[in-house]
């Protein structure tokens, strides 16, 4: 079935809810409205108000009650309306959700999924274009994944819901309307594994979420210039599975990592550290990071140049190749 990324998540949620009646959704405007991005469209109608709940306007409430529901045996899937509005819920995420299993000596499982539309590029107003992944990836006890294609969106949401660990499920909002083929494959790739999307010999380009498409575009352009890039979609940010990245870098000797989140203390730093640890002797150039700058997200008229786009990433590719 050819469908959009948003609709693929919708299908994934629907199938998960049909499979397991403990799966329920809570979030602002997700019922009658179907969510501001319509990701939950039609689910209230099929599953009713108790399983698709319009939350009062408080994110601490959404995450905190999801924890209680999980303690009672439910598998809540929370929708946070926009990345910039997750923060009132972050206290519950970090001090409670992430820690319960640990402090109960493994007794208490909290299979909560928190869906967050994230990232920029849609010309939005303030707080609607944030990339908060590092806050979560830095928190032991939380798992963090992000999809980049409708197929992954469909499959990964189901896997996240099935996980007994809390999963922060980041949805690249500027890709919501992009279409792709979705198969209800009985045998999906593991949730926490990266995937090579395009093979190449000259340089490894790692991205995730919204920048995966950009990375593939870069590889196209680079190919025209005679450079063969290997593109890897990380998919899982915590845990971070870099097996594919190490293998790739051992062949190409060069690595560029791209993310929208600000450069400093971002995922790119962790990846660079691990790559120098595991593939030091293969590296022919320093690992180069292309990221959002260390400023708050700018007004939308500046976002095109603030976000890492094809030009900036290719510039990094050139620098790496010239090394």
């Amino acid at each position: 079935m050819i469908t959009t990324l948003a609709k693929a998540i919708n299908e994934g949620l629907r199938d998960a809810m049909r499979r397991d009646d403990k799966v329920m959704l809570l979030g602002q405007d997700i019922g009658q409205l179907g969510g501001v991005f319509r990701v939950t469209d039609g689910l209230r109608k099929e599953f009713g108000e108790l399983r698709v709940m319009d939350a009062p306007l408080g994110e601490a409430g959404i995450v905190g009650t999801a924890i209680g529901l999980a303690m009672r045996g439910y598998r809540p899937v929370c929708e946070i309306q926009f990345d910039g509005f997750v923060f009132p819920g972050v206290n519950q995420m970090i001090t409670q959700l992430a820690k319960y299993r640990h402090r109960s000596g493994g007794e208490i499982s909290l299979p909560v999924v928190i869906r967050v539309p994230y990232g920029g590029g849609i010309g939005a107003i303030e707080h609607h274009s944030e990339s908060p992944e590092s806050y979560f990836a830095h928190t032991p006890g939380l798992k963090v994944v992000t999809c980049a294609s409708p197929q992954d969106a469909y499959q990964m949401i189901g896997q996240a819901i099935a996980s007994d660990d809390p999963v922060i499920f980041l949805e690249p909002k500027r890709r919501y309307w992009e279409k792709g083929d979705v198969e209800r494959s009985p045998d999906p790739a593991p949730l926490h594994a990266a995937r090579v999307l395009r093979t190449g010999d000259d340089l490894t380009l790692v991205a995730y979420g919204p920048l995966v498409k950009t990375a593939l575009e870069c590889a196209e352009v680079a190919a025209e210039e005679g450079h063969s890039l290997e593109v890897i979609d990380l998919r899982s940010l915590a845990p971070l599975d870099l097996t594919a990245v190490f293998a790739s870098v051992r062949r190409t000797g060069r690595l560029v990592v791209a993310h929208e989140a600000s450069l400093s203390h971002g995922l790119g730093a962790e990846i660079a550290a691990r790559v120098q640890d595991h593939a030091f002797y293969s590296l022919e150039a320093p690992v180069i990071r292309v990221a959002g700058y260390d400023t708050p997200y700018p007004p939308s008229r500046l976002e095109e140049h603030w976000l890492p786009g094809v030009e900036r990433i290719l510039d990094a590719v050139d620098r790496s190749l010239a090394y």
Binding site: Y293, D294, T295, P299, L302
Partner: peptide, 23 residues
Amino acid sequence: PDPDPDSPFLHTYAEMPDTLRAQ
């Protein structure tokens, strides 16, 4: 007016860190 592309950098801190100056 369209914002000055420098403006996010100039207005993030009272004292701009060197890392940001380089960016």
